[in-house]
Design a protein around this nucleic acid. Structure first.
Length: 417
RNA sequence: GUGGGUGUAGCUCAGUUGGCUAGAGCGCAGGAUUGUGGCUCCUGAGGCCGUGGGUUCAAGCCCCAUCACCCACCCCA
C-alpha cells in the first residue's frame, strides 16, 4: 500500500477547501449576473471526441491524455479540457433548437498526463464558460470582460491581458503559406524543435522562447496583417468594444493557442508572479469545432480559468479570503447524563442554524475547554448534574470571559438572539 | 519525454571525518487542588531517517536503482 495520491494530484484539505468554496461562490454570483448557466458533462468521454475536437497533432492528444479501454472495448478518455464536451452536449441535446445564443459554464477537474511543475498538475480544475450560437464580436468582448470581472471581484491586480486574432481557416491558410516561406528562409536560425514545427504547425514557432527563434519571429509576417476582410472586421469590433469599456489590453500578434479548434479571437490573462506557467486564464473563439465533431456550423467562444493557478495567485497577492472559522457554541459535558442532554441540545441548536459542537472523547472539563478554544468557539456552556437538576446553566463568552446564567429550556432562543 | 534540486517525528528543521537507545522548536494528548480556554510549567505519545539493493565490523550519513515532491524545458489552465 503506497498511501500516496497519484503523481500530479492533490488533496484539497480544510481550510484550503473552504477557500475554494468561497472562490467558487463568488464566481457563481458573477456568472449568474452575466446569465451563464451551469452545465455538467461527464468526466470521461469517447476518445474520438477529443481527437477530432482538439486536433490529432496537438500535444494534448498526442501525449497527454488519460486514455483507456473500458470493459466493453470502448476507448475512453478522461477529459483534458471542457470545451469539446460542452459542444458535444450542445449538439447531442440539439440545444441549437432553443433560443440562441446559449451561455454555459462548468467547474470541475480536468486531466492531462504532464510533468508536474509550478501551477501545473495532472488533475487540475477549471472554471470554463462557453457561449454558443453567435458570432457576434460583442460576445467575444463579453467573455473577456467576464473573466476580468471574476479576477477583479476576487481582488486580484497586476494582471496582463493579451489578445490576438488567428483568423478563420481561409485567411489562416493564406497566412501560413507566407509564414512558412519566411521561416523557410531563416531555417538555419531556428532551433531544432522549430525546424520540425515549421512543417507540422508553423504557428507554434511564433511563441517559441528560444532567443534565436524570437529574433526571427520579430521580423516575421503577422497574422493580423493577413486577415480576410471579415476576420479583420471581427477583430476590430472586439477591440472596439473593449476600448469602449476602457479595458486595458495588449495585442500580441504572436499569441497562438495550442488547440486546433480556435479561430479568430484568442486571448490570455497572465500574472507575472506565477512562474513559468503564468496564464491564469485563456480562451478564444472556436467557430470550427461544432462542424468538426458534429457537422453543424455553430460558432462559439469561451475561456477556461485554471483554479489552482487562481488560488496560487490569490495567495501570492496576499488576498485574505473571508472564510468562516470557529463555531457558535461548544457544550462541555460532565458525565453520561449531561452527554445525552448535550446531544439533544446540539441537535436542536443545529436545526436552528447554529454551528455547535460537543466532546466525543470523554475528556476532562479542562480539556474540553481547551478544545472549545482551539475550535474558536464564540460561546461555551458547561453541563453537569447541577445544571441538569436546576435547569440552569452558565454560558461563557470566550472572547470577553463574561458569563451569564440562562435557563436550559431557553438555550436555543438565547443562542439565536 | 529531457535537465537541475530535494526527501530525517503531524509541521519547520538539526544530525560532527560513517560509530552507542536519532534530536529541537512548534503542534498533538494528559496533568499542575477535586467542574472552566488563551500565558506559564511538568509529563507523554509519535520516526523501518522516501523505498529497494550494495559497500562496511558498523550507514540517516558513502554507491546504485527506484519513487515522490520542487523548479525549468516542452506545452498549457
Amino acid at each position: 500500500m503506497s498511501l500516496k495520491a497519484p503523481r500530479g494530484t492533490n488533496d484539497i484539505l480544510p481550510p484550503l477547501s473552504l477557500k475554494w468554496q468561497y472562490v467558487e461562490e463568488k464566481i457563481r454570483e458573477l456568472l449568474r449576473v452575466y446569465n451563464y448557466e451551469e452545465i455538467r458533462t461527464p468526466i470521461f468521454e469517447y476518445t474520438e471526441l477529443f481527437q477530432r475536437g482538439i486536433g490529432e497533432t496537438t500535444d494534448i492528444v498526442e501525449k497527454e491524455m488519460y486514455t483507456f479501454t473500458d470493459k466493453g472495448g470502448r476507448s475512453i478518455t478522461l477529459r483534458p479540457e471542457g470545451t469539446a464536451p460542452v459542444v458535444r452536449s450542445f449538439l447531442e441535446n440539439k440545444l441549437y433548437g432553443e433560443a440562441q445564443p446559449r451561455k454555459f459554464f462548468y467547474i470541475g477537474p480536468m486531466f492531462r498526463y504532464e510533468r508536474p511543475q509550478a501551477g501545473r498538475f495532472r488533475q487540475f480544475h477549471q472554471l470554463g464558460v462557453e457561449a454558443l450560437g453567435s458570432n457576434d464580436p460583442a460576445l467575444d468582448a463579453e467573455v473577456i470582460l467576464l473573466g476580468l470581472n471574476i479576477l477583479e471581484k476576487l481582488g486580484l491586480t497586476d494582471l496582463e491581458t493579451y489578445i490576438n486574432s488567428i483568423g478563420c481557416p481561409k485567411c489562416r491558410a493564406d497566412y501560413l503559406e507566407v509564414l512558412k516561406g519566411y521561416l523557410q528562409e531563416h531555417r538555419e536560425e531556428l532551433c531544432r524543435d522549430c525546424q520540425t514545427r515549421l512543417e507540422r504547425n508553423p504557428l507554434r514557432v511564433l511563441d517559441c522562447k528560444n532567443e534565436s527563434c524570437s529574433r526571427v519571429v520579430l521580423e516575421a509576417p503577422l497574422i493580423i496583417d493577413y486577415l480576410c476582410d471579415e476576420c479583420d472586421e471581427h477583430f476590430n469590433q472586439v477591440k472596439d468594444y473593449l476600448d469602449y469599456l476602457e479595458v486595458k489590453y495588449q495585442v500580441d500578434p504572436t499569441l497562438v493557442r495550442g488547440l486546433d479548434y480556435y479561430t479568430n479571437t484568442a486571448f490570455e490573462i497572465k500574472y507575472r508572479g506565477l512562474g513559468a506557467q503564468d496564464t491564469i486564464f485563456g480562451g478564444g473563439r472556436y467557430n470550427g469545432l461544432a462542424e468538426e465533431i458534429g457537422k453543424k456550423d455553430i460558432p462559439g467562444i469561451g475561456f477556461a480559468i485554471g483554479l489552482e493557478r487562481l488560488m496560487i495567485t490569490l495567495e501570492e497577492q496576499g488576498i485574505e479570503l473571508p472564510v468562516e472559522k470557529g463555531i457558535d457554541l461548544y457544550i462541555t459535558t460532565i458525565g453520561d447524563r449531561a452527554k445525552r442532554a448535550a446531544f439533544k441540545y446540539i441537535y436542536h441548536l443545529r436545526k436552528a442554524g447554529l454551528k455547535t459542537e460537543m466532546d466525543y472523547l470523554d475528556r476532562s472539563v479542562r480539556s474540553q475547554m481547551k478544545a472549545a478554544d482551539r475550535m474558536n468557539a464564540t460561546y461555551t456552556i458547561i453541563l453537569g448534574e447541577d445544571e441538569l437538576d436546576k435547569g440552569v446553566a452558565t454560558i461563557r463568552n470566550m472572547k470577553s470571559g463574561e458569563e451569564v446564567e440562562i435557563k436550559l429550556d431557553k438555550l436555543v432562543e438565547h443562542m439565536s438572539m
